[in-house]
Lab assay of single mutants.
Amino acid sequence: NRKASRNAYYFFVQEKIPELRRRGLPVARVADAIPYCSSDWALLREEEKEKYAEMAREWRAAQGKDPGP
């Protein structure tokens, strides 16, 4: 049972969880929050997504994983 790799979207969703909880939505973990975040993610510009892509690269580097292209 390996841990899933964390991509840019994972970090975006993780950042949104406190806001979703404040709105009273039932989000205990990232998987619960995904349905509420997909439309917001789709509206982000590539420059805005880069922040989360960098977080994912840093996480992979800390895990000793290949950052890929």
Rank of each mutant, 00 (worst) to 15 (best):
Glu46Ile: 06
Glu46Arg: 09
Pro69Arg: 15
Tyr9Ile: 10
Tyr10Arg: 05
Arg22Phe: 10
Pro18Ile: 04
Ala8Phe: 00
Val30Phe: 07
Phe11Thr: 05
Ala33Arg: 01
Leu20Tyr: 03
Glu19Leu: 04
Leu44Ala: 07
Ala33Val: 03
Phe12His: 01
Asp32Ala: 04
Tyr9Phe: 15
Glu54Leu: 09
Ala56Ile: 03
Asn7Asp: 15
Arg22Ser: 11
Pro69Thr: 02
Arg2Tyr: 14
Glu58Tyr: 00
Ala42Ser: 12
Asn7Met: 13
Ala42Trp: 07
Val30Thr: 06
Tyr10Pro: 00
Gly68Gln: 11
Glu54Trp: 06
Glu50Asp: 07
Trp41Cys: 00
Arg2Val: 06
Lys16Asn: 14
Leu44Met: 05
Gly68Tyr: 02
Ile34Thr: 08
Glu46Trp: 05
Leu25Phe: 07
Ala56Val: 06
Ala31Val: 10
Pro67Val: 14
Glu54Asn: 09
Glu58Pro: 03
Gln14Met: 12
Pro35Cys: 03
Pro67Gly: 12
Glu58His: 15
Asp66Gly: 11
Tyr9Asp: 08
Arg57Trp: 05
Cys37Glu: 02
Ser39Phe: 12
Glu15His: 13
Pro18Lys: 04
Gln14Lys: 11
Ala53Arg: 13
Glu46Ser: 08
Phe11Ile: 05
Glu58Asp: 10
Tyr10Ser: 03
Arg45Leu: 10
Lys65Asn: 10
Phe11Leu: 05
Asn7Ile: 05
Ala31Ile: 03
Lys3Asn: 12
Ser5Ala: 12
Ala8Tyr: 02
Glu54Pro: 05
Ala4Tyr: 03
Gln14Asp: 13
Arg45Gly: 10
Ser39Gln: 12
Ala28Ser: 05
Ala33Gln: 00
Pro18Cys: 05
Arg57Tyr: 07
Asn7Glu: 14
Ser39Val: 08
Val27Ser: 10
Arg45Phe: 04
Ala8Val: 01
Leu44Arg: 01
Lys16Arg: 13
Ala42Tyr: 10
Asp32Trp: 00
Trp41Pro: 03
Gln63Pro: 11
Ser39Glu: 11
Lys65Leu: 08
Ala53Val: 12
Asp32Ile: 00
Ile17His: 01
Pro35Trp: 01
Pro69Asn: 05
Pro67Glu: 11
Ile34Val: 09
Arg6Glu: 14
Leu43Arg: 15
Leu20Gln: 01
Cys37Thr: 04
Lys51Arg: 05
Leu44Asp: 03
Lys65Glu: 10
Ala31Cys: 14
Gln14Gly: 06
Ala8Ser: 08
Gly68Pro: 06
Leu43Cys: 08
Ala56Glu: 10
Leu43Val: 12
Ser5Val: 10
Trp41Phe: 06
Pro67Asp: 04
Ile17Asn: 01
Cys37Pro: 00
Lys65Asp: 08
Tyr9Cys: 06
Gly24Asp: 06
Gly68Asn: 04
Ala56Arg: 03
Leu43Pro: 04
Leu43Asp: 15
Ala4Val: 12
Leu44Pro: 01
Ser39Arg: 15
Arg6Asp: 12
Tyr10Ile: 02
Phe12Ala: 02
Arg57Gly: 09
Tyr9Val: 07
Pro18His: 12
Lys65Gln: 10
Arg29Asp: 15
Ala33His: 06
Phe12Thr: 02
Gly68Cys: 09
Ser5Tyr: 05
Arg6Lys: 04
Glu19Pro: 01
Ala4Gln: 13
Glu54Thr: 15
Ala4Arg: 10
Pro35Arg: 12
Leu20Gly: 01
Asn7Lys: 11
Gln14Trp: 12
Val30Lys: 03
Arg22Thr: 07
Gly68Arg: 11
Tyr9Thr: 02
Glu54Ser: 14
Arg45Ala: 12
Ala8Arg: 05
Ala8Gln: 06
Pro69Gly: 15
Ser39Lys: 15
Ala53Ser: 14
Ala53Asn: 09
Leu44Asn: 04
Lys16Ala: 10
Ile17Phe: 05
Ile34Leu: 08
Ile34Pro: 00
Val27Asp: 01
Tyr10His: 11
Glu46Asn: 10
Tyr10Met: 05
Gln63Ala: 12
Glu58Val: 07
Ala56Met: 08
Asp66Met: 13
Ile34Ala: 09
Ile34Arg: 09
Phe11Asp: 02
Arg57Ser: 11
Phe12Leu: 02
Asp66Glu: 12
Ala31Gln: 08
Arg57Asn: 09
Phe12Gln: 00
Arg21Leu: 12
Glu54Phe: 05
Ala42Pro: 05
Asn1Ser: 01
Asn7Gly: 12
Arg29Ser: 15
Pro69Gln: 06
Ala4Thr: 13
Pro67Ser: 11
Ala4Lys: 10
Ile17Met: 07
Ala4Pro: 07
Cys37Val: 09
Arg22Asn: 09
Asp32Pro: 00
Ser39Trp: 13
Val27Trp: 03
Arg22Leu: 10
Arg22Trp: 03
Leu43Phe: 04
Tyr9Ala: 03
Cys37Gln: 02
Ile17Glu: 00
Ser38Gly: 15
Ser38Pro: 00
Ala4Cys: 05
Pro18Asp: 06
Leu20Cys: 03
Gly64Lys: 13
Leu44Phe: 04
Pro69Lys: 15
Ala8Cys: 06
Tyr9Arg: 07
Pro69His: 11
Leu43Tyr: 14
Asn1Asp: 01
Gly68Met: 11
Lys65Thr: 07
Val27Glu: 01
Phe11His: 10
Cys37Trp: 00
Lys65Cys: 14
Glu54Gln: 09
Gly64Phe: 07
Ser39Leu: 09
Ser5Phe: 02
Gln63Ile: 12
Trp41Gly: 01
Ala8Met: 05
Val27Ile: 06
Asp32Lys: 00
Leu20Trp: 02
Gln63Arg: 13
Ser38Thr: 05
Ala53Pro: 03
Asn7Arg: 07
Gly24Val: 08
Phe12Ile: 00
Pro67Ala: 10
Val30Met: 08
Ser38Gln: 15
Leu43Ala: 14
Ala53Glu: 14
Ala42His: 12
Ala4Ser: 12
Arg2Cys: 14
Gln14Arg: 11
Pro18Phe: 06
Asp32Gln: 02
Pro67Trp: 07
Tyr10Thr: 04
Trp41Ser: 00
Val27Lys: 01
Ala31Leu: 06
Lys16Val: 04
Gly64His: 15
Arg22Val: 01
Phe12Val: 01
Asp32Tyr: 00
Phe12Lys: 01
Glu19Asp: 10
Arg29Trp: 04
Asn7Thr: 12
Arg6Tyr: 08
Cys37Arg: 01
Ala4Leu: 13
Ala33Leu: 04
Ala31Arg: 11
Ala56Asn: 09
Pro67His: 13
Phe11Cys: 06
Cys37Asp: 00
Trp41Asn: 02
Ser39Ala: 11
Ile34Cys: 08
Val13Ile: 05
Gly68Glu: 13
Gln63His: 06
Lys16Leu: 09
Ser39Gly: 14
Glu58Phe: 06
Val30Asp: 03
Ile17Val: 08
Phe11Pro: 01
Gln14Tyr: 09
Glu58Leu: 08
Glu58Trp: 03
Gly64Tyr: 15
Arg6Cys: 09
Arg6Pro: 08
Leu43Trp: 06
Ser39Thr: 14
Arg6Thr: 14
Asp32Val: 00
Ala8Asp: 11
Ala53Leu: 11
Leu43Thr: 10
Phe11Tyr: 11
Gly68Trp: 09
Pro18Gly: 06
Asn7Gln: 09
Glu46Cys: 11
Leu20Lys: 00
Glu58Asn: 00
Gln63Tyr: 07
Tyr9Lys: 11
Arg29Ile: 15
Arg57Thr: 11
Ser38Arg: 15
Ala4His: 00
Ile34Glu: 10
Phe12Gly: 03
Gln63Val: 10
Pro69Glu: 15
Ala33Thr: 02
Ile17Lys: 02
Ala56Asp: 06
Ala31Lys: 15
Ala31Thr: 13
Pro35Met: 08
Leu44Thr: 07
Arg6His: 04
Trp41Leu: 00
Asp66Gln: 14
Asn7Trp: 07
Pro67Tyr: 11
Met55Arg: 01
Phe12Glu: 01
Cys37Leu: 07
Ser38Tyr: 11
Arg57Leu: 12
Asp32Cys: 01
Trp41Ala: 03
Met55Lys: 09
Pro67Lys: 11
Gly64Asn: 15
Ala31Met: 06
Lys51Pro: 04
Leu20Val: 02
Arg22His: 11
Gly68Asp: 10
Ser38Met: 09
Ala42Arg: 11
Leu44His: 00
Arg57Ala: 13
Ala56Pro: 02
Asp32Ser: 01
Gly68Phe: 09
Ala33Glu: 01
Gly64Val: 15
Leu43Ile: 09
Val27Arg: 01
Ala56Gly: 06
Pro67Arg: 14
Ile17Trp: 06
Asn7Pro: 06
Val27Gly: 03
Phe11Arg: 02
Ala33Pro: 02
Arg29Leu: 12
Arg29Lys: 15
Pro35Asp: 08
Lys16Cys: 04
Asp66Asn: 12
Arg2Leu: 12
Gly64Arg: 14
Arg57Ile: 05
Ala8Asn: 04
Arg23His: 04
Lys16Thr: 05
Asp40Val: 11
Ser5Ile: 15
Ala4Phe: 15
Pro18Asn: 03
Gln14Cys: 09
Pro67Asn: 10
Trp59Arg: 05
Ala8Thr: 05
Ala53Gly: 10
Ala53Thr: 09
Ala33Gly: 10
Glu58Lys: 12
Ile34Ser: 07
Ala31Tyr: 08
Ala4Glu: 15
Arg22Met: 07
Ile17Tyr: 01
Ala4Asp: 04
Arg29Gly: 13
Phe11Asn: 03
Phe11Glu: 06
Arg29Thr: 15
Arg57Met: 12
Phe11Gly: 02
Pro18Val: 06
Gly64Trp: 10
Ala28Met: 06
Gly64Ser: 13
Arg2Ser: 14
Tyr9Glu: 12
Arg57Glu: 13
Ile17Arg: 04
Asp32His: 03
Arg2Asn: 08
Tyr9Ser: 03
Leu43His: 14
Ala56Leu: 06
Glu54Lys: 13
Val27Phe: 09
Ala33Met: 02
Tyr10Phe: 14
Gln63Met: 06
Leu43Asn: 15
Pro35Gln: 04
Leu44Cys: 05
Trp41Glu: 01
Pro35Val: 01
Asp66Ser: 11
Gln63Asp: 09
Ala42Gln: 09
Met55Thr: 09
Asp66His: 14
Ala31Gly: 10
Glu19Lys: 02
Pro18Glu: 06
Phe12Met: 03
Gln14Thr: 08
Glu46Phe: 08
Gln63Ser: 14
Gly68Lys: 12
Lys16Phe: 03
Glu58Thr: 05
Arg45Asp: 08
Gly64Met: 12
Gly68Leu: 06
Lys16Gln: 12
Ala4Asn: 05
Pro35Ile: 03
Ile17Ser: 02
Glu46Lys: 12
Asp40Asn: 12
Glu19Thr: 04
Arg23Ser: 02
Trp41Tyr: 05
Arg29Ala: 08
Gln63Cys: 07
Phe11Ser: 03
Ala53Trp: 10
Lys65Ala: 08
